[in-house]
Design a protein around this nucleic acid. Sequence first.
DNA 1: CGGGGGGTTGATCTCCTTCAATCAACGTGG
DNA 2: CCACGTTGATTGAAGGAGATCAACCCCCCG
Lengths: 251, 251
Amino acid sequence: MQKIISSPDRYLHVQCSDCPIRHRAVCARCDDDELQLLEEVKFYRSFEAGQTIVWSGDRMDFVASVVSGIATLSQTMEDGRRQMVGLLLPSDFVGRPGRETAAYDVTATTDMLMCCFRKKQFEDIMLSTPHVGQRLLEMTLDELDAAREWMLLLGRKSAREKLASLIAIIARRDAALKLMQPEGQVSFDLPLSREAMADYLGMTLETVSRQVSALRRDGVIEIKGKRHVTIPDFDRLIEEAGDDQDGGFLT
Amino acid sequence: MQKIISSPDRYLHVQCSDCPIRHRAVCARCDDDELQLLEEVKFYRSFEAGQTIVWSGDRMDFVASVVSGIATLSQTMEDGRRQMVGLLLPSDFVGRPGRETAAYDVTATTDMLMCCFRKKQFEDIMLSTPHVGQRLLEMTLDELDAAREWMLLLGRKSAREKLASLIAIIARRDAALKLMQPEGQVSFDLPLSREAMADYLGMTLETVSRQVSALRRDGVIEIKGKRHVTIPDFDRLIEEAGDDQDGGFLT
DNA sequence: CGGGGGGTTGATCTCCTTCAATCAACGTGG
DNA sequence: CCACGTTGATTGAAGGAGATCAACCCCCCG
């Protein structure tokens, strides 16, 4: 499962101005001058699906933005119990300025491209360009809200509600990528295995599988193959999730 | 349960330089000039134990630091299920710059004093004095870590481990207040009712009560009265919490 | 003395975990 | 081309941890 971490993609270089996450990532508020500073020190790294990017406790001398692909943040107890604590999507930020070592395992679930900065250099930039710190604060507050939403799910929702919530969240962010509202019929691929869903939802993979089957039996979702999901009625799904209306956003 | 919100304590005024949370709150990094700006626009409000400070969805035109006392952040589902998502202790920050309405219910569990700022004024200060935004980022990152630690507890720990974790966390912050390490014998009062603990831990108050009894029977904790706890062996408690060593911090 | 809030304890039930068998899809090597 | 192992998913049967429902206690206060 563990593969050798790929070396930096030194030959790949995208202009910041052409970057797909230019207006959502930590650089979103920067003007052209500020962007130039970042441009000069950034470098790209790519990771393959399944690859561990860093292990909790490891030294981590860079911070990064997810350009494309999906990664997970997770914590593990000594006896092997695992809990995912974050899902990293394009434009999300990885790493913490001012911290030496990684606090969580970071794992790529799909092939990924990340835009990286040496930590020290990034910290200097944060001091000199307030727009970076401001945007990072905004993003961190959003993540905190998402984490708290997730605490409600983990602490109080039934297995069925947990699954409906997760599917609704994935549907929402998928719609957001396509710049549309999720309503009526929605269709997409699940980016997570049953095991990853279980780690996220705080349950076993068997229960995940059972609840997926149950939601399908009851017509809440339709499934083609293992991963492709169609939602005939989005409001129905939200109802099953136990959210009044618009709760349950993510990362 | 709901009481009338007290009016601002206009006559109370503490100099920032004498403030007990001066070096831990959102103002921690400010120099004297910057502190002067805050001093001019701050105002105090006090709340009684049990009082709701704001309801989720209510308009909230101020942000604040907890000066003394304890409050909880919680979310409620339509059918009444509740989950606490944060514990606010002295120096913690309440409210989100740039947001109009409260995202959570905020409830005082003890009598409290809060140092408040009109939201608009605070936002202006954040733009002009980077030290405030920098400190807020640092605090928000800490809260995010605490929330994620809590996700592991909610998703993967047993009832007994949950209780041991909660008690360990309270013991730690209590020791932190007294500026000492928790080790060997530790003693303090639980600041939460059984019901509040249940809301925090994602379980029922009956299960909380049973697990407290079980931990007492097994000699992990000793109890005098309803609320006073003594921990004969802190390492033993940590072991029961399922944390390897130093996990489980809070807010 | 009555009542209410907070806490404890017991009996029962149920939802989810655990353990296990089975299946489909896929790749690999003989 | 087929046997074989592997990986991810589904389904079943059994058991248990915690929820639910309910009784009761203690203490304070009007």
